[in-house]
């Protein structure tokens, strides 16, 4: 656990860089983490995933599985990997200011 300055704001993060207090998240922070994770500029497709993750997290207290993002969130598997190469669920959760996903699928 520690503090980190992202997009001009000091936020609490864990050792892997995930925000530990979701209320500290904002869109500028998301954009900065996206650049750091090699995703680049966030576009409409990215935001659809990020917003779905946040909605699910609010309702269930956990990050949904990737399959749920596909089925209930309506984002095809191929798109998820294209939007967030190198770790679709991990990277999108981090950008969304949520905890690291804890499911195996």
């Amino acid at each position: 656990m520690g503090q980190k300055e992202i997009a001009g704001k000091t936020v609490s993060v864990n050792e892997e860089g995930y925000l530990t207090i979701h209320e500290e998240w904002n869109k500028e922070i998301a954009a900065a983490i996206a650049v750091e994770e090699g995703i680049g500029e966030l576009k409409e497709g990215h935001w659809k995933v990020i917003e779905f993750l946040q909605k699910e997290f609010k309702e269930n207290g956990t990050v949904p599985s990737l399959r749920r993002v596909t089925k209930a969130g309506g984002v095809p598997t191929k798109d998820l990997y294209a939007f967030f190469p190198g770790g679709p669920l991990k990277k999108s959760s981090k950008i969304a200011g949520l905890l690291k996903p804890a499911s195996c699928v």
């Binding site: 599985s65 598997t77 499911s103």
Partner: peptide, 16 residues
């Protein structure tokens, strides 16, 4: 647990 049936799983891995 969101573990898909085998045919869907195969498609998912392929699409990934």
């Amino acid at each position: 647990l969101d573990i898909p049936p085998i045919p869907e799983f195969i498609e998912m891995i392929h699409d990934a």
